[in-house]
Nucleic acid binder design. Structure first.
Lengths: 183, 183
DNA sequence: GTCTATAATTGGATAGAC
DNA sequence: GTCTATCCAATTATAGAC
């Protein structure tokens, strides 16, 4: 416990589970695989975290990271938000996908809704004004989520082959109209 | 076999599997449950369809339905496309979700990509002109998919409580700009 | 075509010694 | 905190009688 190099077994299990769940999802990962990857006995996985699903919920959290959106200038926030999504770390992206694919489970669906709100809806909603700000924030978040869906769930080849700067410009311009309507 | 009232066992299995896969997904449905729901022996499920995953791929197809999009006037196609999505039958919607949640499996991911192309990309692409038509069709399909994502995967409560006509108007107007750019 | 029986494996989770 | 051993239920899939 006094040395900084060795992690505790609990932390090794947490790290192994995080990687496996991101890579193969909840159903595709077994408790035994987690134990093996952590060089720990499978029984310790349950002992430390209660159950496989609790461990999944414990590890599959999307961090609000740096959240540069709260500081972006309002008149460029459409582009900033698209760039924010495109610049997701692999960790954030794969965690999002694991939650999305596991969202048949109610507890996981709740967590996905949380992630969607924290990362997409809230930063947008905070900057919007007007009577329909709530609706516009919801639509804007859907629009951003559509990129996540098309690029990383569906894997649209046209979009995957397109420069990020082009997507930022074109898609961001549409998003901007929900942020600062011109009508 | 001369009467029209009784389905064959194979058809009963197909029908039961379709309903269960839509409702609980691939991982959440067992061969035994399918057999029980079809009043057939579980072994027949494998005998007739090869494996659980083959049966999933056999049953989880999205039909192009009526496809009203190919006839919609171009200058209203943004709204038409959004309405097209919002009017999905329960069958189409839940099949889409089953594919989406099962898309960790490569074969299922391929099927999801097919569905995305057939229902969203192709009808849009067919009507677009210009050098960047391919890109605009891809972005437009992403935008439409974002609504699917926000409403039915994430379950955004604000959007779920919003009149479809409002979503058609506001979101459709954005989509229209990719279909008939004004710049 | 259908069903009985079961193979062969794997799953999550637990008891209890150390 | 850790590990050995194991329980028990569930899984997909198959073999073979009828």
């Amino acid at each position: 416990m006094a040395d900084g190099g060795a992690e505790s077994t609990q932390e090794r299990i947490r790290a192994a589970a995080t990687a496996l769940f991101r890579d193969r999802g909840l159903a595709g990962t077994s408790v035994r695989q987690i134990g093996a990857a952590a060089s720990a006995d499978p029984s310790l996985v349950i002992r430390h975290f209660g159950s496989k699903e609790l461990l999944f919920l414990e590890t599959m959290r999307v961090e609000a990271e740096h959240q540069p959106l709260f500081d972006a200038p309002l008149n460029d926030m459409g582009r900033s938000t698209v760039r924010f999504l495109l610049d997701f770390t692999d960790a954030t992206r794969s965690t999002f996908l694991a939650l999305l694919r596991g969202s048949n489970e109610p507890a996981i669906a709740d967590r996905l809704l949380d992630a969607h709100r924290d990362l997409f809806v809230a930063p947008l909603r905070a900057r919007l004004t007007g009577p329909d700000a709530e609706l516009r924030a919801g639509l804007a978040a859907a629009l951003v989520g559509g990129l996540l869906y098309a690029l990383w769930v569906v894997g649209d080849e046209t979009l995957l082959a397109t420069d990020h700067s082009v997507i930022v410009d074109r898609y961001g311009a549409l998003l901007q109209q929900l942020i600062t309507p011109t009508v």
